[in-house]
Amino acid sequence: MMYPVLGEQLKKELMDILACPICKGDLVLNIVEEDEVEIKSGTFYCSQCKEYYPVEDGIPNLIPPDIRE
């Protein structure tokens, strides 16, 4: 069995293990700002649920919109 390698590039590889919190489906990442190590801001989109999840200050916010605030 293959496992994701969480190594030096952890912060970007981390994006590979993130899922939509509602359907657990794949997310499409739209990067707004990044550096060599991490994604600073952007959005994840779940095409199944048609929901957007923001990345703010380097923190992916994977809380369903109705309970986010």
Binding site: M1, Y3, I17
Partner: peptide, 26 residues
């Protein structure tokens, strides 16, 4: 708390428990 953890140089995902993680046995 997520922002606080981040300020402490912790790689954090804001989500409830395992909700925002793919079920990969890693």
């Amino acid at each position: 708390a997520a922002q606080c953890a981040r300020s402490n140089d912790v790689e954090v995902i804001r989500t409830n428990m395992f909700d925002g993680l793919k079920p990969i046995q890693c």
